[in-house]
Design a protein around this nucleic acid. Structure first.
Lengths: 209, 209
DNA sequence: GCGTTGCGAAACGGTTGCGTATCGGAAGGT
DNA sequence: ACCTTCCGATACGCAACCGTTTCGCAACGC
């Protein structure tokens, strides 16, 4: 054994793979996914062209389109929002604010689109997205609401699935309809005060107190 | 002018087009749309095969895929729910109940999917859907909420876009997550009491009264 | 029953993307 | 320097669909 010959799986001789090419491929993949609705429309050839790379270089690293997409989306896994724990209202606003910001980001949006629409065609991929992104956030929100019920900040007869749908569904739908209706130049940025106003309406409801 | 020669565009001689074939094509189109996410994956050849029809028969009637889809979706134009006008709560439940039922119908669901995801690729088609289906319902809901503010049934400082997103987004998201999480055998039917419970949470909010 | 038109089936050439193979050259290890 | 491996480019055969054309038969009006 030489000093460099650790028990690692044999350092390959020859030219190492270009990290730059790999990054370019991932970037191109993310771009194209967010441009095209659905990963079925994503073509390896288009990725290669966009990345300025030969198809060989892609197939040398990923054996299928799905593998490539999995790795590409893994780059996006945004960290969970830090929950202060001071009050349900405050934490809810934090949570909604993260969603508001992400709703303005094309790449984050496409993750949700894929998770919602391709669940039957690519169950493995969607399952992976669920575990990496959707699941933890759902858990965080569920815990937040449960805590609220325990502390009395939220009504005792709260229907948890409905409450969760209210939080997530409202902001998602607001983002959707704002984007559809106006098609603003910024491409979907939402007003800064949105999180607070949403939290207000969700917590207090639509009727007068 | 003979007795049959009205100023109609000349009764065509020869074998008339088969209404049965036309219906089979529409049905096959709707089936395939609801199976495949996105109309890009819809192929005329698949429609012809599913309908038991030659491609010729399709192209004789519709000049493009988009025209076919427009006509197919026109079949689905569900009537607006009748609004009793007795109380906001009652009308809201009526509205939500319609959405609940439609969320359990594969074909109705795909209309929303198309409207949300293909707006850039098929703007003409989406615009048509908006005018025929989404628009009127949005208007009905908006009027319902406005009326509630006027009568004092709803809070005076109601944020209309947010309130609308709460109603529609919550039920849509609930349907989505219920379908994703469980993948029940019925394919998405939602509990019968859902509309009322949703209305309760939306109107009263998540906090104790 | 005759003429006209629709029908399903099949085949066409064209396009796109797949996944593989081959090439000359470039880039690093040692 | 040398050897190994990666690089981008290009071409291949294969498959799916496109939109069109041709074919022989079926159906309906007159």
């Amino acid at each position: 054994m030489t000093s460099t010959d650790e028990n690692r799986p044999a350092r390959p001789a020859g030219r190492p793979r270009s990290a730059k090419a790999e990054k370019a491929i991932i970037e191109a993949t993310l771009d194209l996914i967010s441009e095209s609705a659905g990963i079925s429309e994503l073509s390896i050839e288009a990725v290669a062209a966009r990345a300025g790379v030969g198809k060989t270089t892609i197939y040398r690293r990923w054996s299928s389109k799905e593998d490539l997409v999995v790795d590409a989306l893994a780059v996006l896994k945004a960290p969970l929002p830090p929950i202060s724990g001071r009050s349900v209202r405050e934490d809810l606003i934090t949570y909604l604010e993260v969603m508001r910001r992400e709703a303005g980001d094309v790449r984050s949006r496409c993750v949700m689109n894929i998770a919602m629409n391709e669940s039957e065609r690519h169950p493995r991929l969607v399952e992976r997205i669920r575990q990496a992104t959707v699941g933890p956030r759902q858990e965080a929100l569920r815990a937040l609401l449960r805590r609220g019920v325990d502390t009395g900040e939220l009504r005792a007869d709260l229907d948890l699935p409905i409450a969760m749908a209210m939080v997530v569904g409202t902001v998602m739908w607001y983002a959707k309809s704002a984007g559809l209706g106006e098609a603003g130049a910024d491409g979907g940025a939402l007003p800064e005060t949105l999180a607070e106003r949403l939290a207000d309406h969700i917590l207090a409801g639509l009727t007068p107190r």
